[in-house]
């Protein structure tokens, strides 16, 4: 048995080394004095201060945060509606087609989503002069695939939730809509938060779809990073990466602690 334990620990150590060494190397070399990313020349924080002076990059980051925020809000609304239909509307005619349509964007290569939406936007623009390509089209495009992810998250919560509270409220004469807002919504709220964060991250992370549907005035952060990465490694990108990794790790840690506490409370 102990032989098996050791095997298990080795597998996990190797696997996590594979997942984390690239990220750790990014952070280590972001503090490197030398411009040559892989040659160590002493500790320095100069790339961080250069990053803070890079107006273009900061502008792109701000645009991405705005798009990500609006996209996340829109996706949570759409995704929650879709999840309700899929879980609760057992007899709806729209259930089956919706089920397939929600699953497809999850795996659809982003290059297909990007090109197809661009062609739609171009045709619409020719037909009625709207929408102009830029921030709006990126939000519309992002929410199309983000909502699918939100649906998955909210759906699994709806499936597993205990319905007796809802039934009790109904028995006491509450109307369905009222029950939804006062009973169901608070119960599934954690999944809405998780879905919102997921949608935000997906949007902040997308290069391909945004490259297709964005206009000249709207360069998102990934588009900016990509054009700089294409020219080779740059310590400024390492500094940016380290900041992103730090923010995400802290957020995941907090979420983990909250979830752990909730689980504990539920057990009592």
């Amino acid at each position: 048995m102990s032989k098996l334990r050791w095997l298990q620990i080795t597998v996990l150590l190797l696997g996590f080394a594979f997942l984390y060494i690239p990220m750790i190397s990014l952070i280590v070399y972001s503090f490197n004095e030398s411009r040559l990313v892989t040659v160590w020349a002493g500790f320095s924080t100069k790339w961080y201060s250069e990053l803070m002076d890079n107006r273009q990059l900061l502008g792109a980051a701000w645009l991405s945060i705005k798009i990500g925020f609006l996209n996340a809000c829109l996706s949570v609304i759409l995704g929650t509606l879709a999840a309700i239909v899929l879980v609760r509307f057992r007899r709806s005619r729209m259930r089956k087609p919706l089920d397939v349509m929600v699953a497809a964007p999850l795996v659809m290569p982003d290059i297909i989503i990007g090109l197809s939406l661009l062609l739609l936007f171009v045709s619409l623009e020719n037909l009625m002069g709207w929408p102009e390509r830029g921030q709006l089209t990126v939000i519309l495009a992002h929410s199309t695939f983000s909502m699918a992810y939100v649906t998955v998250v909210v759906r699994s919560r709806l499936v597993s939730m205990d319905r007796s509270l809802e039934e009790a409220a109904m028995d006491l004469g509450a109307r369905p809509l009222w029950v939804f807002f006062t009973v169901t919504l608070p119960i599934i709220a954690p999944s809405l938060v998780a879905g919102w964060l997921l949608a935000f991250t997906l949007s902040m992370d997308d290069l391909v779809v945004a490259s297709f549907v964005s206009g000249p005035g709207a360069t998102t952060l990934p588009m900016m990073v990509y054009s700089s990465v294409r020219l080779g490694v740059s310590p400024q990108i390492n500094a940016l990466a380290s900041i992103i990794i730090l923010v995400v790790s802290v957020a995941v840690l907090i979420a983990g602690i909250l979830m752990y506490r909730q689980e504990k409370r539920l057990r009592h």
Binding site: D205, V229, I244, V248, V252
Partner: peptide
């Protein structure tokens, strides 16, 4: 499991970029 998912929450582009340096 959270350790498995964590990299997914950080930027995809940046994780690919990390491999250039490696």
């Amino acid at each position: 499991l959270m350790l498995v998912i964590l990299p997914f929450w950080t930027s995809f582009l940046i994780r690919v970029y990390a491999w250039i340096g490696i």
